[in-house]
Amino acid sequence: MIPAKFDYLAATSVEEALSALSQSDDAKVIAGGQSLLPVLRMRLNAPDLLVDIGGIDTLKEIRDDGDSIVIGAMAPYYEILANDAVKNSLGLLHKAISEVADPQIRHRGTLGGALVHADPAGDCGAPVLALDGELVIAGQGGERTVAAVDFFEDLFTTAVGEDELLTHIRIPKYDGWGSNYQKFVRVAHQWPIVAVGAAVKTDGGTISEARIGLVNMGSTALRARATEQALVGREATVDGVREACDLAAEGANPPSDLNGDADYRRHLATVLTRRAVLAAAGG
């Protein structure tokens, strides 16, 4: 399967990429291309121009910035996985990325590309949302920062405008928090039917704070806020967290498809949330 014809620009700077985007009515940015190329090959999309940001080295950095970690939009998954600061301070994101597709895809694919692709079944959106990430978006008028909660607008739709570029992801550190990512699939390297990511802070066996992200439970990545609030002050035991985790699907509007109907997904979300919270709390 071959994509439809397109023009191609290998941008060497953010400015060059932005200028090309502003001059085309129908351009697409390609980062690692691991989601975009299948789309182009199946001709679900056929842009006139492909702007390749793979050669912009400033977008590949992963930086420890004191209270937060900054990940460039072009940093490939395997580089993020190899980064000790990410592993130590963003455990939930690290665990979710280790479950993305397969090693070959993780060598090419990028966190930035996945977030802008905004597939609600993607592994990364919900963790970035749950961890209160911020997205730095560049346009010709300058940079703006968007909170993850405002970034994911709808199915495959984000706050990044046609002439804009996601350049960095900034996520506050969660030192001392436990984390776990529960991905429910029927076969290897499938998109999750449902996945749940949990980051939990405990104090002597009691949960003091929790962040829960839901994958494939609606048209965007979601956060289980009712569960997060209900977990505070609970003992990190099966009985201690059960009631709170039963609220996980509150407000969610999951899809029905061949892998399961919406009710099944709602049930799955509560079970996976319980497992993720207990594992994250070390219980």
């Binding site: 191609y8 290998a10 291309g33 390749d52 070959q104 895809i105 060598h107 090419r108």
Partner: peptide, 11 residues
Amino acid sequence: SVKSCNVLAVQ
């Protein structure tokens, strides 16, 4: 390792 059906030659 990469899947060469999912990389453009220009990349």
